[in-house]
Design a protein around this nucleic acid. Structure first.
Lengths: 254, 254
DNA sequence: TTAACAATCATGATATATCAGAGATAAACC
DNA sequence: GGTTTATCTCTGATATATCATGATTGTTAA
C-alpha cells in the first residue's frame, strides 16, 4: 500500500504544471500559463468556449496579451479558433487521436532507446521503484471506484513516470517534444477515459525492465507496445463524444 | 542526366513553401507566411534582426499582425526574441542541432515503418524513381561547384523526397510534425553546410529499397542510418559559426 | 586617453478604440 | 404555423498610441 506522501517522494522532478519559466515575465506569458494550466487541470474541458474579453477581465489585463496567449496555444494544438466566431478548447476527432498516438510512439520509443544506453545503476533503481508504485496505484484504481481527486493524482504520477524516461534520454529537445505531445493528449484521455481501463499485471514494471536491459531495440519495442495499448478503447469512448460543430451556445464561463 | 523540367515532374506534391492555406486569410497569417518564406529561402539568414516596425512598413500593415506572426514563429523555433531587445532569426547551438536530429530520427523512422506497410506498387515505383534522380543530382553537386540556385533546388528536391515518405505514412499529423522539424533544420543545414558533403553511392536508392521491402523494422533501421549520416560534419561547421550574443549591430535590413 | 555618466533612440509590451463578419433573435410576411 | 428577413450583439482582427526598458552614443570629468 502506498501513501500519498510516499507517492510525492518518488516523483522528485517538478516537470509538469508547476514550471514558472521566464514565461511569467510578460502579461501574455502569464496568461498563457494560466489558461494552459486551467485546461490541463480540467477546469476548462473540451469544447469550452474561451472569450478573449471575458478572459481579459478575469485575468486583469487587456485582451491583447490574451490574444497572443491563445495564438500560441492554438499553434500548440490545445485550442482551436475560427475567425470572427470564437475560440474553444480543442475538440479532437478520431484522426487527431490516432496521429497523436503515432507521434507519441515515435518520440517515446526514441527516448526509450537513448535512455537504455544512458541509464546509471541509480537511475535504474529509481525507475524500477516508480514503476512498481505506479502498477500498484493503477491496480487500486481498477478495483474500487476512487474519487476523481485520487484518479487525477495517479494520472499525474503516470505522466511523471513517462517524463522521467524522457529526461533519461539526456536530450532536452526530445524531452520538450514529448512533454508537448503528452500535454496534447492529456486532457483528451483524461476527459474521455475517465475511469481507468484495467491494465496487464505489472504493466509498467515490464517496461522498466526493458529499459534497464540496456538494449536499445528491446527498450524501443517495449515502449511501442506500451503506447499502443488501449488506443482502441479510447477511440471507442471518443465516438460517443460529439461536440462537432456546435461552437456557440456552450458553457460560456470563461 | 536530368533536366529541371523532369525534376519538377517527379515532385508532384506541392508540399512545401507554396502552401496557401487558410493562413492567407488574415493579415497576421499573410505576415507569417511571408516571413517564414523569406527565412526558408535564405533571404533572411541566421541571426538577422527582425524589426517589427520595419517589417510592418515593408508588408504594408500595422505591426500588430507582425507581432502575432513572430510570436508563432517563435513557438515554432524559427526566430528567437528577447523582451525589449529584439527579434532575430534563431541561431542554433550544438545542442539544438543534436536535439533536432534526434527528433527527426524518431519521426522519420516512424514514417518509414508506416510507409513500408502502406505503400502500393505504384508508390514504390515512384519512390524508386525519385531516389534514383536524387542520387544523380547529388552526385552532380559533389563533382562540380554548381551555382547556389541549383544547390537550392536540389535541396528542395531532397526535402520533397522526405516529405513524400512522410505522406506515405498516411498519418497527416505525423506528416505535419515532420514538415515542421524539417523546416526547423532546413536553413541551418543549408546555411552551414552549403557545399554538399559527398554521400555514399546510391544513398537514397538504398533507403527507397528498404522502404519497398515492406518490413517495418528494415525501413526503420535504414531511415535511422540515413538521418544520422553526416551529423558530425554539420556540427563541425557550426562550431565556426559564432553569432552567440551579438544581438544588435547586425544587418538590420528588415 | 580613458572611464563614468547622461541623454537619446529603438525596441517589444501593452492599452484602448474601432472595424467587419458571423449567429442569434425576433418581428414581419406569406 | 412556418419561413424569411432585418437587426442586434457577440466575436476576433486590426490600427493607433503610449509605456518601460535596454542599447547606443555623445559628453564630461579624472
Amino acid at each position: 500500500m502506498i501513501s500519498k506522501s510516499e507517492l510525492r517522494k518518488t516523483a522528485r522532478t517538478p516537470t509538469r504544471l508547476d514550471k514558472v519559466d521566464k514565461a511569467g515575465a510578460s502579461l501574455s506569458g502569464r496568461a498563457y500559463q494560466q489558461i494552459r494550466d486551467e485546461i490541463l487541470r480540467g477546469d476548462l474541458s473540451i469544447g469550452d468556449v474561451l472569450s478573449r474579453r471575458r478572459l481579459a477581465k478575469r485575468l486583469n489585463m487587456s485582451f491583447l496579451p490574451i490574444t497572443e496567449a491563445l495564438k500560441v496555444l492554438e499553434t500548440e494544438g490545445l485550442v482551436e479558433s475560427r475567425p470572427r466566431i470564437g475560440t474553444r478548447v480543442r475538440v479532437p476527432n478520431e484522426q487527431d487521436i490516432r496521429d497523436s498516438n503515432v507521434i507519441r510512439e515515435a518520440l517515446e520509443s526514441q527516448a526509450a532507446r537513448l535512455s537504455a544506453q544512458n541509464m546509471t545503476a541509480e537511475d535504474k533503481k529509481q525507475l524500477r521503484t516508480s514503476a512498481r508504485h505506479l502498477d500498484q496505484l493503477q491496480k487500486m484504481c481498477a478495483r474500487e471506484h476512487a474519487d476523481s481527486r485520487f484518479l487525477f493524482s495517479v494520472h499525474t504520477y503516470h505522466m511523471e513516470f513517462h517524463m522521467r524516461i524522457a529526461e533519461l534520454s539526456r536530450s532536452p529537445g526530445l524531452r520538450r517534444a514529448i512533454e508537448k505531445e503528452q500535454v496534447l493528449i492529456f486532457n483528451w484521455l483524461y476527459d474521455i477515459a475517465a475511469n481507468q481501463r484495467t491494465l496487464p499485471e505489472g504493466f509498467h514494471s515490464t517496461l522498466a525492465e526493458a529499459l534497464c536491459s540496456g538494449d536499445p531495440l528491446v527498450a524501443d519495442t517495449a515502449m511501442r507496445v506500451h503506447v499502443q495499448y488501449g488506443l482502441d478503447q479510447v477511440l471507442e469512448r471518443l465516438a460517443n463524444y460529439d461536440g462537432g460543430d456546435a461552437w456557440r451556445l456552450k458553457s460560456t464561463k470563461s
